[in-house]
């Protein structure tokens, strides 16, 4: 059963065709990689999948149901969480508050119940707090819970952004260049971290990455894009020998 499927997905910005005929099939539980040179349309795919862009052609299916054109917040609540290429934390909130915001999307208490501290609100807050603290504990950020998120070291900010995404209880996690700006040691730590959360939270992970070492080491499936077109798909070992991939990356 495919968790995520795109059929003939495409997007053009005015006359610029950013993505064409994408047929992506991500099985449940996969660690799936999406690679391609700059401008290949990778981030466009993420913006389409997470609802920040509406596709100009094709469909997106999640659990077999069409989610094409839904707004981002609804897609998140269905179970697709994402991170951003340039980290987007709530910079002036604490680390704990960042994760709490991730928890509260499905909250049922209304604003006046929150303002008047009704039991339904307090019960939800207690649950969010317990869940956030547990999450921070598991990812090793518990010590920084009361720090201001924008002042964390870069590597920790990346980790916090992933943690915050986990707080929305996703089934599918979209990671947009999680290793960008990390040194080799940090990249290694990140790979271990991704493997751990993949296992612990029964996640399916779709990752965009430039760092081929990370993608080849982590992913079971790859799709390679160039100029909005899919040029290869398959297991890493196969894809890396594909002549069109070599041409796209190295020039001929």
């Amino acid at each position: 059963m495919m968790l995520l499927e795109t059929r003939n997905l495409g997007h053009s910005f005015g006359g610029l065709l950013a993505l064409e005929n994408l047929h992506l099939q991500v099985p449940e539980g996969a660690l799936y990689g999406l690679i391609g040179p700059n401008g290949a349309g990778k981030t466009t795919i993420f913006n389409l999948l997470s609802g920040f862009l509406k596709p100009t052609q094709g469909d997106i299916l999640f659990h077999g149901a069409k989610i094409t054109g839904l707004p981002p917040e609804q897609i998140t609540l269905l179970g697709i969480a994402r991170t951003f290429q340039n980290i987007r934390l709530f910079g002036e909130l604490t680390v704990l508050d960042n994760v709490l915001v991730g928890c509260q999307g499905r909250g049922r208490a209304s604003w006046w119940q929150a303002a008047l501290r009704f039991p339904v609100y307090l019960r939800e807050e207690r649950e969010y707090l317990a869940r956030s603290r547990a999450l921070l504990e598991e990812v090793g950020l518990a010590g920084a819970a009361d720090d201001i998120a924008g002042q964390l070291p870069y590597g920790h900010q990346r980790r916090l952004e992933i943690t915050r995404a986990l707080a929305t209880r996703p089934k599918l996690l979209l990671l947009d260049e999680p290793a960008a700006g990390l040194n080799p040691q940090e990249t290694q730590d990140l790979m271990d971290f991704l493997r751990t959360i993949h296992r612990e939270y029964h996640l399916t992970i779709l990752v965009i990455e430039h760092n081929l070492r990370l993608v080849m080491g982590l992913c079971q499936h790859l799709t390679v894009l160039d100029h909005g077109l899919t040029i290869a798909a398959g297991p890493p070992a196969e894809v890396r020998r594909h002549p069109r991939v070599i041409r796209a990356y190295l020039g001929k």
Binding site: E73, F84, R88, F90, G107, A114, R117, A165
Partner: peptide, 27 residues
């Protein structure tokens, strides 16, 4: 009371980064 509640936290999150707030499932 509202600003110090979960709603206030959401409002501040929107102030800091609305795109990220939407990605967290906030309307």
């Amino acid at each position: 009371a509202l600003v110090n509640s979960g709603y206030g936290r959401a409002l501040k999150a929107i102030r800091d980064d609305e795109t990220a707030a939407r990605a967290m499932g906030l309307n």
